[in-house]
Amino acid sequence: MCSLPVPREPLRRVAVTGGTHGNEMSGVCLAQHWLRVPGELQRPSFSATPVLANPEATAACRRYMSRDLNRAFTSSVLTTRATPEDPYEVTRARELNQLLGPKASHRAFDFILDLHNTTANMGTCLIVDSSHNAFTMHLCRHLQLQTPDMPCPVFLYQVPGEETFSINSVAKNGLALELGPQPQGVLRADLFSRMRSLVGAVLDFIELFNQGTSFPAFEMEAYRAVSHVDFPRTEDGDLAGTVHPQLQDRDFEPLQPGAPIFQMFSGKDVYYEGEATVYPIFINEAAYYEKGTAFMQTEKLSFSVPALPALTPAPTPGP
């Protein structure tokens, strides 16, 4: 399934973005810390650039000010002529595209690592657009091997035929870390420390690649988005029920046909009527109430990832 060409030169231009959502505090606080003390992001072959992606939302401790910044990196947003009436996040997306991109250009950053928290019980989730990028798949595998006692499921968010829209899609390669559960506007020491360690592991992998390390082929599992499921609602659009206790906190676990998914306020249970087993994620995510999503349905995929060959050393200039 990996079809995009792998990098054939060292990755020099790397960014770590936090605060894309201003109330997801692990990434916010790490970005703010590294802007003051950036030495932790330095490696022998490169130095990662810390970026506070949405400073106004961060200052207000809100997910966003006008619209979701992490959905704003589409060609229509980035290429439309600017006007004074543009929402703040549209303007900010264009600024970040100039700083880290432009998207899909040879001048774009080599890699963007974007830091997120979720209120759902997602654990340590690695989010990429698709399985087509062998370099990012090898990075995910590296993180999984570095933390054998901590599951790191891979979520492929891009629906076939859909354009990428996240901040890390601006770069030639990218990955988002999604750690939870953590309430919005709250910083948990355990998730902060885990995210910090994962960032270090990502930068270490890039350094290994830059120094000429090769990585063997492997088999991988990942979860691909299938559909979004809304809460049960009244005719007026109000909630008529909530996530069933037997589904709550069971992100990435198999959901079988006939299993309960919602509990109506009337006391009645609503059951999953699909014909195939699916794997719900972002179950009862606070930020998705406004999006009409009680959880996302995913399917589990297994696929082969080809070897990542070592970089060929640049020829030494002659005398």
Rank of each mutant, 00 (worst) to 15 (best):
Ser3Phe: 08
Val6Thr: 07
Arg8Trp: 02
Glu9Lys: 15
Pro10Asp: 00
Pro10Val: 01
Leu11Asp: 00
Val14Met: 00
Gly19Pro: 00
Gly22Pro: 03
Gly27Lys: 02
Leu30Ala: 01
Ala31Val: 00
Gln32Thr: 07
Leu35Cys: 02
Arg36Trp: 03
Val37Lys: 14
Gly39Ala: 12
Glu40Asn: 00
Gln42Thr: 08
Gln42Trp: 02
Pro44Gln: 03
Phe46Tyr: 03
Ser47Phe: 01
Ala48Ser: 03
Thr49Leu: 14
Pro50Glu: 02
Ala59Pro: 04
Cys61Thr: 14
Arg63Asn: 02
Arg63Lys: 07
Tyr64Arg: 07
Ser66Val: 05
Asn70Tyr: 03
Arg71Lys: 13
Val77Cys: 11
Thr80Ile: 05
Ala82Cys: 04
Pro84Thr: 03
Pro87Gln: 05
Thr91Leu: 10
Arg94Pro: 07
Leu99Asn: 06
Leu99Ile: 04
Leu99His: 09
Leu100Lys: 11
Ala104Leu: 09
Arg107Thr: 11
Ala108Met: 07
Ala108Ser: 12
Phe109Asp: 04
Asp110Trp: 08
Asp110Leu: 11
Ile112Cys: 08
Cys125Asp: 12
Val128Gly: 08
Ala134Glu: 11
Thr136Met: 05
His138Gln: 15
Cys140Pro: 05
Cys140His: 07
Arg141Pro: 02
Gln146Ile: 03
Thr147Gln: 13
Pro151Ile: 05
Cys152Asp: 09
Pro153Lys: 00
Val154Thr: 11
Phe155Thr: 12
Glu163Arg: 08
Thr164Ser: 15
Ile167Gln: 12
Asn168Gln: 13
Val170Gly: 05
Asn173Glu: 06
Leu179Asp: 13
Pro181Asp: 13
Gln182Trp: 02
Pro183Met: 13
Arg188Gly: 11
Asp190Trp: 11
Leu191Tyr: 13
Leu191Ala: 13
Met195Phe: 09
Arg196Glu: 12
Ala201Asn: 06
Asp204Leu: 13
Phe205Trp: 05
Glu207Asn: 06
Gly212Glu: 04
Pro216Asn: 02
Glu219Phe: 01
Glu221Gln: 14
Glu221Lys: 11
Ala222Pro: 03
Ala225Ile: 09
His228Glu: 12
His228Thr: 09
Asp230Tyr: 10
Glu235Ser: 14
Ala240Ser: 14
Glu253Asn: 10
Leu255Asn: 03
Gln256Asn: 10
Gln256Val: 11
Pro257Glu: 07
Gly258Thr: 04
Ala259Gly: 04
Ala259Trp: 04
Pro260Met: 09
Phe265Gln: 08
Phe265Ser: 04
Val270Glu: 12
Tyr272His: 13
Thr277His: 11
Val278Leu: 12
Phe282Pro: 00
Phe282His: 11
Thr293Ser: 15
Phe295Ser: 02
Met296Trp: 03
Lys300Val: 01
Leu301Ile: 15
Phe303Gly: 06
Ser304Phe: 12
Ala307Lys: 09
Ala310His: 09
Thr312Cys: 12
Thr312Glu: 14
Pro313Met: 06
Pro313Cys: 08
Gly318Cys: 09
